[in-house]
Design a protein around this nucleic acid. Structure first.
Lengths: 352, 352
DNA sequence: CTGTTAGCGCTTTCAG
DNA sequence: CTGAAAGCGCTAACAG
């Protein structure tokens, strides 16, 4: 459905103020001191009286500015994306731009679709905040779409690696996860489990790689690290914990590649009577706000998500630079009480 | 910044496919079976080859559809608004519309600004998900703005009472809070405290009124209910708890008008060594996801936020109905362990 | 089914 | 500083 009836237009205003269309345009939407104060006043009053609202589409079409940007993410209720969105929205707002949000719920088709729609809207910039998908077809299609965006004079930027040319805000997934793995190893853990999401998400790959590398550095051979894959979500975390338990858990520590998964896992573990960290240490990634409030507070790696979103939007909006930039974001290890040294007790899942 | 260079246009496609502009339009963006398969094929291929992307602004201007809607909320990282946004975005998506999000951070000026901008974008619908502000100037300005939106053929809807004519999705703030007050009274609490946000937010008023009414019904006179006001945020909740403690708390139960405030309050209480619920019972409102995960899990009132957002968007998008509709949303009391019967011990803030 | 012809509402040269 | 005129890219009557 489009808007059928129309409101007052610029010519209505011009007529009411007894000036030419061009003058009205300059007075209302043009730069400053270009129209005589007398006319300007008359025009502004007429506009107010008539309830004139400029038609952004006409403005855009006539070569004016659009001042809109697009943001593609998976799910706004996921605190990870919400934080990124907050930063991106704030940055856009600072430059006077409106943000259009597309929720993909992890579908690459939907993601491509949104980029296309944003292009149709002639947005000035697009920020892609999903995880990159390690899929050639997707990558080729997205690359083409984004090339178009660029040729049309617009910008774009990624949050986290997508293996597609463009500006990138790159959190230190590898390093952060390595610190986590190392910390666990140093705590004496010798049998680790990692609950990863779908392995075609580049973020997941990097975190797992880093974790394994860190653990190895701490003396835990990769062969002692079990890997279980489940969706990158709270339910996925729950499922991972269940699988771990059902399989006769031999690990003394569990790394969930994202906090949201860790939350689900903690739920499940607690329900099953597994004590954290006594029976099993638990770590997540991102340091989403509720992590510190859980029982026990969960160790994780902190990323400044809001700044990441803001930076990505700034990069996407910056049409000055020539080449593509990569902004590295540090990851900070945050140890809380969900991690403890391995005790002499053999961990089991039968005690409170 | 607007997009300067332009990509291929419909006429480029038409020329390449050797057909008229109109035919190309019909084939690409028009309805179905209206163009011969042969031409259609040629046109589609030309479009693909050229990388044609329709100009949504031109389409909108030419009387086509815009398929965009606006959503105004306070802060996307607040789980309350995130949940509403999710529902609203999903509903819009179902109807093929893109959502533009405006974050007001509780500024009425910004709110009016966004509505204005959305109007300029000729959005089909606007959903206002802030709390209503009990302010005449605001209300008058907003009413006028929304009248314009309607006259222009667009729709709009509120989430929660704004005292402005329009569709409304109305959670049972009063009833839910009353149940809370009653429950506390029935638990034996005789001295209550309520941490309310700015009293010009209608949501706050309704919740407090309801709470007091419920407590009275349970035998607690209104005079035994202390009220402390702080911002409607986590920090506000913290501040409220601090004030309560500093004032020499006589209440045995604290009602925070929103979960987010309750989270802050719980933080502060715990830090101060006040045991919940032993020393003080705590209740919130909304049943945001993390409430059940806190220690102790916090009693609250559940609202189906996502459905509320979805419903509001549907109402705003529905241009069929004649009058304004009000959709009531039930509130469900959720008692968890942050509430307990008052013990014989006089509550104090000095014990673990 | 397909082509022609007007605009949608605004910004912008280009003249005065 | 102000007015007149030419589109921006597309859809929507109208004709064929």
């Amino acid at each position: 459905m489009g808007n059928q009836s129309r409101g007052p237009t610029l010519s209505d205003v011009a007529r009411a103020a007894q000036v030419s269309l061009a003058t009205a345009s300059r007075a209302l939407n043009g730069g400053q001191r270009v129209v005589g104060p007398e006319l300007r006043g008359r025009i502004e009053e007429a506009a107010r009286r008539l309830g004139y609202v400029p038609n952004a589409h006409a403005q855009a079409l006539a070569g004016g500015t659009t001042s809109t940007v697009g943001l593609v993410l998976h799910d706004i209720t996921d605190p990870y994306f919400a934080a990124i969105a907050r930063g991106a929205i704030a940055a856009a707002s600072d430059q006077g731009s409106l943000v259009m949000v597309g929720s993909t719920f992890r579908s690459t088709a939907r993601e491509l679709d949104f980029v296309r729609t944003f292009r149709a809207q002639r947005v000035d910039a697009i920020v892609l905040a999903g995880s990159g998908f390690d899929d050639d077809g997707y990558r080729a299609a997205m690359t083409e779409e984004l090339d178009g965006q660029r040729r049309a004079g617009g910008g774009y930027a990624f949050v986290s690696e997508h293996h597609i040319p463009g500006h990138v805000v790159l959190p230190d997934n590898h390093g952060g996860a390595a610190a986590l793995g190392r910390a666990l190893a140093d705590l004496g853990h010798r049998r680790l489990a990692v609950a990863g999401g779908p392995s075609h998400l580049t973020t997941v790959q990097h975190r797992i790689d880093g974790f394994v590398r860190g653990a190895e550095a701490g003396g835990v051979p990769a062969s002692c690290i079990d890997r279980i894959d489940h969706p990158f979500s709270e339910d996925g975390g729950r499922a991972a914990a269940r699988e771990l338990l059902d399989g006769g858990c031999r690990a003394t520590a569990l790394f969930c590649v994202s906090d949201v998964m860790a939350m689900g896992a903690l739920d499940e573990l607690t329900a099953a009577g597994v004590a954290v960290p006594k029976d099993l240490s638990l770590v997540g990634f991102n340091d989403v706000p509720t992590m510190r409030r859980l029982t026990p507070p969960v160790s994780t790696v902190r990323l400044d998500l809001e700044t990441m979103g803001r930076t990505a939007m700034e990069l996407a909006l910056d049409r000055s630079a020539s080449g593509f930039r990569t902004v590295h974001v540090p990851a900070e290890l945050v140890l809380r009480s969900s991690t403890a040294p391995v005790g002499v007790d053999v961990p089991s899942r039968e005690n409170a």
